[in-house]
């Protein structure tokens, strides 16, 4: 039974992704490819936010899919499929980050996605301003935000990425990370406080200072 008290059959009937995974479990030709197509963008983005390197992010995302394939026979639909997938991703990413800490590597800036330079999608980042100065400011801002995210410890980073980019609620993050909801609440609070400290000079960049703050 899931946390919400639903039986696995009810879950499978309601969640098309679970149905797809059940087809993968039954060795349905094409189901696995469908699964990769469906989740590749989210997994690569998740890994990229976590490890900060495009090549490594792709390798890790691929490894997640291979693990899904390897453990398909053991798959039982107990909760949302994405929760199960992100649990695998969480374990892999944390392992990768820990082993990187043991043997530090030089990480490339986010824009240097490979030998051919930035990918088209990276070039398509919405440019709200115009002119080289504005673009430079924006690039600097993006870099500072990336650094602030990398400055968080691995668990805080994972919680932030799951909450911000995957829209997972505290209970789902707790399930993915094997923590209590209370621990996630505290983890996210500390993470947001750390981010705020790291990005304090960029919060009111547009000149609009917090009126409330000045009332202090």
């Amino acid at each position: 039974m899931s946390a919400t008290g639903e039986s696995s059959t009810q879950l499978a009937l309601r969640d098309p992704e679970i149905r797809l995974m059940l087809r993968v479990r039954e060795d349905d030709a094409g189901a696995f490819e469908e699964l990769v197509e469906l989740y590749q963008q989210r997994l690569v983005a998740l890994m990229h936010h976590l490890v900060g390197n495009a090549e490594e992010a792709e390798d890790l995302a691929q490894e997640v899919f291979l693990r899904v394939y390897r453990s398909r026979k053991k798959y039982r639909p107990r909760s949302k499929f994405s929760t199960w997938l992100f649990t695998i991703a969480n374990n892999l990413a944390l392992n990768a980050l820990r082993s990187r800490q043991r043997k530090p590597t030089l990480s490339l800036p986010a824009q240097d996605s490979g030998p051919l330079g930035p990918r088209p999608a990276e070039q398509l980042v919405p440019d709200r301003g115009s002119g080289p100065m504005r673009r430079l400011e924006r690039q600097e801002l993006t870099e500072r935000i990336r650094q602030a995210l990398e400055g968080l410890n691995e668990r805080q980073r994972m919680a932030v990425v799951l909450n911000k980019f995957e829209d997972l609620n505290y209970a789902e993050i707790a399930e993915v990370m094997g923590l209590t909801t209370k621990a996630v609440k505290s983890l996210l609070s500390r993470a947001r406080e750390n981010l705020r400290a790291a990005l304090s000079s960029y919060i009111y960049m547009d000149g609009e200072h917090a009126r409330e703050g000045s009332e202090r």
Binding site: A45, A54, A61, A121, T142, L149, R196, L199, Y204
Partner: peptide
């Protein structure tokens, strides 16, 4: 307000895409 603005700053991060040959 500061916490909300900090959170919104994360929207500036590019959304990385998988390579075309990923699948």
């Amino acid at each position: 307000d500061a916490l909300r603005r900090t959170w919104e700053l994360l929207d500036f991060l590019p959304q990385p895409q998988p390579s075309l040959r990923f699948t």
